[in-house]
Design a protein around this nucleic acid. Sequence first.
DNA 1: CGGGAGGCCTTGACAATCTAGGTATCGGTG
DNA 2: CACCGATACCTAGATTGTCAAGGCCTCCCG
Lengths: 110, 110
Amino acid sequence: MSDKTEHLHGTLDALILKTLSRGPLHGYAIARWLEDTTDGALVIEEGSLYPALYRLEKRRVIEAEWGTSELGRRAKFYALTPRGRAELRQRTEEWARFAAAVSRVLLPVT
Amino acid sequence: MSDKTEHLHGTLDALILKTLSRGPLHGYAIARWLEDTTDGALVIEEGSLYPALYRLEKRRVIEAEWGTSELGRRAKFYALTPRGRAELRQRTEEWARFAAAVSRVLLPVT
DNA sequence: CGGGAGGCCTTGACAATCTAGGTATCGGTG
DNA sequence: CACCGATACCTAGATTGTCAAGGCCTCCCG
């Protein structure tokens, strides 16, 4: 239905961090939230999501804790660490610069 | 000096096509032009560029012809095919949607 | 003569994503 | 009751595209 999401490359981490910046969430909810708030423009495959979460946890930019979801299911909640906030700031800035550069090239009508 | 350009993933093809949309250029000039017009925000490594050009040529969205550069050197000039123009349109649209979605998530201050 | 810039190319490593599976629980429906 | 879809997690393997680092050749300039 929608795009090749290969674009995500290098962006997923930032998206996850940003999603968590409004409070802890479990993995499934992160994917849901991203897809919902972008009206399906972003599709987060579970095969990308969980490895990404694991990476981020290992680098201590997020931390995990088992809990119970809104629907009463066992779920692992992730929260941003201070390092995570710092990294989010930096990644966001990188994205902004990159996106601006690409848009400057791509969007002008020739 | 500048960013990790890993972001390029999936975007390089579109950037090349767009660069060629203003007329044939040789590989080296494509990289130069992209870096210049983005003030160095985009850095195109030759190890990414030439494989990309080869891919695009094989898919017949660009075609190559040997010629002579402005400086009198042997150089391979690439030109957009009709299929290339179509693909450029499509890729540009995809990028726009993707970038809009990511920006919508990433840029709001929380 | 040496070196840098212009030009092209390739090999191998690496990193991130996707595909496609798997597990388990719960709620609703035929 | 049997089943299926949604919720929730996880993983192995293939794929892909980028990067790093090299090599090649020619021209020009100091």
